[in-house]
Amino acid sequence: MREILAYEGPCFTVEWYYDENGTSQAFDYFNRLGDAQKLPENEKQRAIFSMQSYNTRVQKGEYYEEG
């Protein structure tokens, strides 16, 4: 059975699921989506930058939550 990765990162890997017939309803649906329905190209980079910025502020003690 073939494997197609949707995401591979340091903590987990997400693969498209294929049934016993070798078909993947989710992957087929994703491929039919128009470009406007998918994430913009730079969205992943923006999310990574935001996470790194947050982690840096937490480590420096510059981030706090009011509550």
Results as ranks from 00 to 15, higher is better:
39 L>E: 13
66 E>I: 07
16 W>S: 03
4 I>R: 13
3 E>I: 11
66 E>H: 14
19 D>I: 02
16 W>T: 01
7 Y>G: 08
60 K>G: 09
57 R>P: 01
4 I>H: 05
54 Y>T: 03
20 E>K: 10
18 Y>E: 09
17 Y>R: 12
12 F>W: 10
9 G>N: 02
60 K>L: 06
8 E>G: 12
52 Q>T: 00
29 Y>C: 11
62 E>C: 09
43 E>R: 01
58 V>S: 13
29 Y>A: 13
4 I>N: 10
10 P>T: 06
46 R>N: 09
11 C>H: 09
60 K>T: 14
65 E>C: 08
32 R>I: 04
22 G>Y: 00
2 R>E: 14
63 Y>L: 07
42 N>E: 06
35 D>L: 05
42 N>Q: 06
11 C>R: 10
55 N>W: 07
39 L>S: 04
53 S>I: 03
46 R>M: 07
20 E>T: 12
16 W>P: 00
29 Y>F: 15
7 Y>R: 13
55 N>A: 09
24 S>P: 00
33 L>V: 03
46 R>P: 00
7 Y>F: 10
9 G>F: 01
25 Q>E: 05
24 S>Q: 02
29 Y>T: 06
6 A>D: 15
3 E>Y: 08
62 E>A: 11
3 E>R: 13
58 V>C: 15
33 L>W: 00
13 T>A: 05
30 F>G: 12
5 L>M: 12
40 P>D: 07
63 Y>T: 06
36 A>W: 07
20 E>W: 12
42 N>C: 14
55 N>K: 04
40 P>S: 08
9 G>Q: 01
28 D>W: 00
38 K>M: 14
35 D>Q: 09
1 M>S: 10
24 S>I: 03
8 E>Y: 03
51 M>E: 12
23 T>W: 07
49 F>T: 06
56 T>N: 10
59 Q>A: 09
24 S>L: 02
33 L>A: 02
62 E>N: 11
62 E>Y: 15
14 V>C: 03
61 G>C: 01
47 A>C: 13
35 D>P: 00
53 S>F: 07
20 E>S: 14
53 S>P: 03
13 T>L: 04
10 P>F: 05
28 D>E: 10
27 F>S: 11
26 A>T: 04
24 S>Y: 02
17 Y>N: 12
57 R>C: 04
62 E>D: 14
1 M>H: 07
37 Q>K: 04
4 I>C: 14
37 Q>N: 04
66 E>F: 04
30 F>P: 00
50 S>G: 06
8 E>H: 11
22 G>N: 01
67 G>E: 14
28 D>V: 01
57 R>I: 00
50 S>E: 13
13 T>G: 04
29 Y>P: 02
55 N>S: 13
58 V>I: 14
30 F>H: 15
60 K>W: 09
36 A>K: 06
2 R>G: 05
10 P>Q: 09
1 M>F: 07
22 G>V: 04
45 Q>I: 02
19 D>M: 03
24 S>G: 02
54 Y>S: 06
49 F>S: 15
10 P>A: 10
3 E>D: 14
47 A>Q: 13
62 E>I: 11
43 E>T: 02
10 P>M: 05
1 M>Q: 06
56 T>D: 08
60 K>I: 07
19 D>P: 03
20 E>Y: 03
26 A>L: 13
38 K>I: 02
4 I>M: 14
50 S>F: 07
26 A>V: 08
64 Y>F: 12
60 K>P: 11
22 G>D: 06
2 R>T: 04
57 R>W: 05
33 L>T: 01
43 E>Q: 09
51 M>K: 03
67 G>T: 09
